[in-house]
């Protein structure tokens, strides 16, 4: 694993770093969610003073885990897939199929970039805010969508590069 990543072209190494960064931010969000939800319980039960921000904030943090961590999970090959059929193919066909599926993944992720940007712009233009007490401008959480899409698209391109370079002899 280490060896192959050393051989990688700097661009692809950089993509891996971007996925890692997404994973790190996701892990921090997870830690923060854990503690603020307990803080909420504490404030409500002990001090009879429920917070006005924990519920909404914890939703946004969990969305961040999903959108920003997805590329990291892809880099680690953690996304669930069914390999019963694929395992029976010969290496050449398996590689061909892998190229197709990674390409589909890249297209799917790309949809999140450009449609996500459209939604960010829309939320910004009509000044849409959340219904809770935070009244958060919604373009901010919406930004997670194109950013997550970008990380994913890059990582799929990375996977495609791997597919092309691992030509079976």
């Amino acid at each position: 694993m280490q060896k192959s990543s050393n051989r990688k072209f700097f661009l692809f190494r950089w993509i891996d770093y971007s996925s890692d960064t997404g994973g790190i931010v996701a892990a921090i969000c997870l830690l923060v969610v854990t503690f603020i939800v307990v803080y909420e319980v504490f404030m409500r039960y002990i001090f009879n003073a429920p917070t006005t921000w924990v519920q909404e904030m914890s939703i946004y943090l969990c969305m961040a885990i999903g959108f920003l961590g997805a590329a990291y999970a892809l880099k680690n090959d953690s996304h669930f897939s069914i390999t019963v059929v694929v395992d029976r193919l010969n290496p050449r066909n398996r590689r061909r199929l892998k190229i197709v599926t990674d390409f589909l993944g890249a297209i799917y992720s790309f949809v999140f970039i450009f449609k996500g940007m459209e939604m960010v712009k829309f939320a910004y233009d009509i000044e849409d805010v959340s219904t809770g007490l935070l009244a958060a401008p919604l373009w901010i959480p919406w930004l997670l969508v194109p950013v997550g899409g970008l990380l994913l698209t890059l990582q799929f391109i990375n996977k495609l590069a791997d597919d092309f370079s691992n030509r079976p002899k």
């Binding site: 885990i65 959108f67 961590g69 997805a70 953690s78 996304h79």
Partner: peptide, 20 residues
């Protein structure tokens, strides 16, 4: 703890992709 958080975030993101 940090490794556990990373790994949990990793799985959570995978679940989130399926939920979406």
């Amino acid at each position: 703890l940090w490794q556990i958080l990373l790994s949990a975030a990793n799985i959570s993101a995978m679940v989130a992709v399926i939920v979406m």
